[in-house]
Design a protein around this nucleic acid. Sequence first.
DNA 1: GATGAATGAGCGTTCATTCAT
DNA 2: AATGAATGAACGCTCATTCAT
Lengths: 219, 219, 219, 219
Amino acid sequence: MNSRSICNEFLHLKRTDLREAILEAAQQLLVREGYGSLTMRHIAQRAGCSVGSLYLYFERKEGLLFALLDRAQERLAERFFAPEIQSITDPRQRLQALARAYVDFGLTHPEAYEVLFMLHPRELASYPEERLEQAYRLLDPIVEAIDTYVQQHQLEMPDVRVAAVAFWSALHGIVSLLLAGRLARLRLEVDRDALIEQAIRQAMGGLCQRMRPKNNRTA
Amino acid sequence: MNSRSICNEFLHLKRTDLREAILEAAQQLLVREGYGSLTMRHIAQRAGCSVGSLYLYFERKEGLLFALLDRAQERLAERFFAPEIQSITDPRQRLQALARAYVDFGLTHPEAYEVLFMLHPRELASYPEERLEQAYRLLDPIVEAIDTYVQQHQLEMPDVRVAAVAFWSALHGIVSLLLAGRLARLRLEVDRDALIEQAIRQAMGGLCQRMRPKNNRTA
Amino acid sequence: MNSRSICNEFLHLKRTDLREAILEAAQQLLVREGYGSLTMRHIAQRAGCSVGSLYLYFERKEGLLFALLDRAQERLAERFFAPEIQSITDPRQRLQALARAYVDFGLTHPEAYEVLFMLHPRELASYPEERLEQAYRLLDPIVEAIDTYVQQHQLEMPDVRVAAVAFWSALHGIVSLLLAGRLARLRLEVDRDALIEQAIRQAMGGLCQRMRPKNNRTA
Amino acid sequence: MNSRSICNEFLHLKRTDLREAILEAAQQLLVREGYGSLTMRHIAQRAGCSVGSLYLYFERKEGLLFALLDRAQERLAERFFAPEIQSITDPRQRLQALARAYVDFGLTHPEAYEVLFMLHPRELASYPEERLEQAYRLLDPIVEAIDTYVQQHQLEMPDVRVAAVAFWSALHGIVSLLLAGRLARLRLEVDRDALIEQAIRQAMGGLCQRMRPKNNRTA
DNA sequence: GATGAATGAGCGTTCATTCAT
DNA sequence: AATGAATGAACGCTCATTCAT
């Protein structure tokens, strides 16, 4: 072990700090200025380091984005597996809690959400397959909750995973529209929270519509 | 007579059609390569003309994007106001037809949908206000259909516009996830059409969940 | 003589008019927007014709500039050889009248002056030698007036042509500084006309300073 | 170690000197090829660096021009405040020395002169006001010298500042005509230096012409 | 005679990336 | 570990000029 290694160990905390600072800077820039303004120059400037330093921690810009994705995944996972939610036994309430957690996560961590679900896959073409699949495994809690819910209420449902994806897509719809600011111009009479609550209500309501199929389908 | 003229004759392309060719090229590029690759050089190359020619038909890149938006609006409007849908009298069936038309529009005209609903508003900052509001007025048929549906079925619903937006956001969710290719890796057991059908079913089912609110909300 | 020639004769006036309109447009643009903004597009737009039409009357942009030069020469010549000036017999008064005419010409026809004396020779590199020399022959009236003046007052003067050039350069100095707007910031207490009058006075005064060389040179 | 490093070592050029090399290149281009050819690409090529490197030292092209102006100002100031001139006590001789210094400065530093006094103000529209006024304050030594001269010789002169501007404009006239090469074709019998000397003589002679106004003005 | 569509070259500028120090 | 100087390629855009009609 030469002096450089020693130095590295000694500086270990600082090293990690700069890496984090870079990721934070990139995240902030992404959500504030948009992907088009997410340049290495700006990241370095906001992180308070030189451009070259970025390449000490990330091989290329793409790798930096991948790291952002990893972070975002972790944060969403923390939400989904939090004791507050896991301790809810009633499947409907747990599903509702998960839905709220998802939307809340998207709105309070727009940068993470944007990276996770709104960045075009093109930009992440070479994101390792395994890490990407891991991302979508975040849906498992929703699948499980729906499964339990369906079984308990004896609902008819051909494929619970399909229902879960449809449920998730409804949540993604409201989050992405809100994040993109597309609902601002609609001049709704209700505030944002009421809209969200209604969207969640409808998403959950959609899960049990199969109970009375006869009256509705051909009415 | 140079090679271009020959080519043009061969392709039966009048020069006036170059404007359309440019828009087509831009649309294809946008959906295939992403906004980041939507450069004037690429558009010109794909349209088979020089960069300068783009500026004969569009004042700036922004104007070209705006024209794309206008086209997309027209196409969606054609779908929504088609006789096949307008002739449906049953409000539920008409709503379902609108939902299917919306999703189908998004999937068969991904470039239009992407421009309309997935491009970041930042890129369209100077899109004329009136034309943008006109775009969102495309949602009116959905609002009306839901309104009729709710009244006919005597459903409780605090604000039909909010419900319509939530309904729309569910549709947008499934379309945007499909377009972004985010559902490809989930290895669902059903095909794409079944997933869409289920998503629409849940979105519609969500509209009538308020009929039995007491047992579910606080159970 | 075919029908085309007949047509040409018939339209002869119109043709000449367009040529004049182009030159006028170019002149106005040159003085209002500067050489950097003197583009064929702008000229055509202001002249109310198409870009291609410019090339019917001028082989290239350079040729158009040359024509501007020719016009400017003619205008200055008209001033210098006007009866009002030619009829002045007193050499000093004629010289003064010429000086005033020169400065007035520069200030009232800035576009012509700019083309004649302020455009960088680089831009006129291929201006035909003969036409350029003809331009500088415009100085002849000044030379003659000074010559008569010197002889009449029996002034000592080694080379009257050199004196004339120096005299002219003083006039050019004040005109070019005024045209370029460089004197605007000096916040002089006098108005423009007084400054011009003083400049002319000094230029003329400089011609007779050799009369009393002893007291001045070594004082 | 690539070829550039070798070249740099060979030329004993430190990297910090690149800024100077860029300014030198720009100066040469400006005077040799004209403002129209003063492009960032040409500057980079002549300076032996890439285009991007220009932007390491100057925020924009305009900033590069401003730096040129600053340099030119300094050089002229050095001339005017040189001990050789400041030590001259006789006001007439000092004025003559200043005039010679001015003309000599213009002819030996044509690039500086062109930037300072011949570039169209349009190109320098956003040059900071203070720095521009500082440029024109360079004329102060001339004003002072004339003032002293006038007082000592008890000349009549309504406004010494106006006289100074007229004096300066005479100098500017000869310098700008020489720099623009407009006098080359006149085929004068005297050489350039004699012409300059005569122009200065006339400019100075003009300052004392008010001594005998009565006989001349209305004759 | 007149047009307008078209182009290739070039403009100022910014980008992700490299590398000697 | 960290830097900052440097670059080639690409960006959106404008130019003078050509040419079939």
